[in-house]
Amino acid sequence: MSVTSPAHPIIDDSAVFDRADAIPGLPHEQVVFCEDAASGLKAIIGIHSTTLGPAMGGTRFYPYPDQGSALTDVLRLSRGMTFKAAIAGVALGGGKAVIIGDPTTQKTPELLRAYGRFVDTLGGRYLTAGDIGTGAEDLDIVGESTPHVLGRTATSGGSGNSGPLTALGVYQAMRAAAAVAWGDPSLTDRVIGVEGVGKVGSELIALLAAEGARIVATDVDRAGLARIVERFPDVTTTDDVIGEKLDVYAPCALGATLTESSIERLTASVVCGAANNQLIEPGIDDLLHRLGIAWVPDYAANGGGLIQVDGERAGADADVTRHRVEAIYDTVTSIFERSASESVATGRAADQLVQERLRTGRTA
């Protein structure tokens, strides 16, 4: 149905609902479009589910080519956060926000405060944190306008950068997958291709290097890649990590890198990384399963940052939070066990666990 009036252009009001309802039985609860002319803010907040608790999800500041792309991203990411929270066993729901723009040129304190005011209007139904393009210092500014912020700097009472604990969770997930693929969780001498060396990928490389893995890395940010090589001289760089001969492929940048064509070129036995929404479409999960590639569902692997901010919210001790992140190893092991016992792909096995928790309203 389209609506028109002399004062407004034609609006296709089916577009949001059709896209938000793309997953049968799991529609989004609320999608909020935010615009502040004075600061230039254009943002979208997606609340997918509050079944297990308030919707939690970071704020991505990114130069989307158009608003449709931003909407697609926030819908996929907020749904992913529901699954991430459920699989992690925390009392949180799924949400996400995107700010449309280039954070290197358009991010200002005024814009962040305006964004905080929009978050505040949701009354705690949505809790925001950091993501691509936003960090703990930015969240301090957002927090000037709303208390519904997690992941601020330690001096502002927050738990700080979530990169290290997110990376730790991915590392433990990778070890669990290695145990399935090779009968041993050790990553020593394994060739691991890390795609994306940002705040999570760089920390993952540090963990892998400490264990003696052989690392091949890539990133569109050439300066960031150069910093990694300076820090870890044994790291090899490439423009095409999937094309390298690998034991493990670790996507840690943007999603949708796993496609039929990319899998045809993939030599890795394990796929495990920090990127969200790694599959271009759900059927890719079955293809990986048929090929015997041990894929760790992204929302199971990359939940360390979510566990961190949940611990911040609950006032948990840092050691307790770290132990919960390390337990991602056990979660991933249980997913592979279900996958084997029910002869289903790992993504489907993980989804079944999430659906059970959402139906019963149960956290771990």
Rank of each mutant, 00 (worst) to 15 (best):
L187C: 08
L187Q: 01
L187H: 03
T188I: 13
D189V: 09
D189Q: 11
D189E: 14
D189G: 03
D189P: 11
R190N: 04
R190L: 10
V191A: 11
V191W: 08
V191C: 09
G193L: 04
V194A: 03
E195I: 15
G196F: 03
G196K: 00
V197C: 01
V197W: 06
V197H: 01
G198L: 08
G198C: 04
G198M: 07
K199M: 11
K199F: 15
V200M: 01
V200Q: 00
V200T: 00
G201T: 02
S202L: 04
E203S: 15
E203F: 12
L204P: 00
L204Q: 00
I205H: 00
I205G: 02
I205A: 02
I205E: 04
A206R: 13
L208N: 05
A209D: 11
A209Q: 07
A210R: 14
E211N: 00
G212R: 15
G212A: 08
A213G: 04
A213E: 05
R214K: 13
R214L: 12
R214W: 15
V216E: 01
V216Y: 11
A217G: 06
A217K: 00
A217D: 13
A217E: 04
T218H: 10
T218Q: 10
D219E: 14
V220Q: 14
V220A: 13
D221L: 03
D221I: 08
A223V: 14
A223R: 14
L225Y: 02
L225I: 08
A226I: 09
A226S: 10
R227A: 12
R227D: 10
R227F: 14
V229Q: 11
V229N: 10
E230P: 10
R231K: 13
R231M: 10
F232T: 10
P233F: 03
D234Y: 13
D234R: 12
D234N: 10
D234E: 09
V235W: 05
V235F: 11
T237A: 09
T238M: 06
D239H: 06
D239V: 09
D240S: 14
D240P: 14
D240W: 05
V241W: 00
V241T: 03
I242M: 09
I242Q: 00
G243Q: 06
E244R: 04
E244F: 13
K245P: 10
D247E: 07
V248A: 02
V248R: 01
Y249L: 13
Y249D: 03
P251E: 01
C252I: 03
A253T: 04
A253V: 15
A253L: 10
L254R: 06
L254H: 13
G255Y: 01
G255D: 08
G255S: 07
A256E: 14
A256G: 15
T257G: 08
T257R: 07
T257E: 10
T257Y: 08
T257P: 04
L258S: 02
L258G: 09
L258W: 06
L258F: 11
L258E: 00
T259M: 05
T259H: 08
T259D: 07
E260N: 15
S262W: 09
S262P: 07
S262G: 08
I263L: 02
I263M: 03
I263S: 01
I263P: 00
I263F: 06
E264R: 11
E264L: 15
E264D: 15
R265D: 12
R265E: 07
T267L: 05
T267K: 05
T267A: 08
A268P: 03
S269G: 11
S269K: 12
V270K: 01
V270L: 10
V271Y: 05
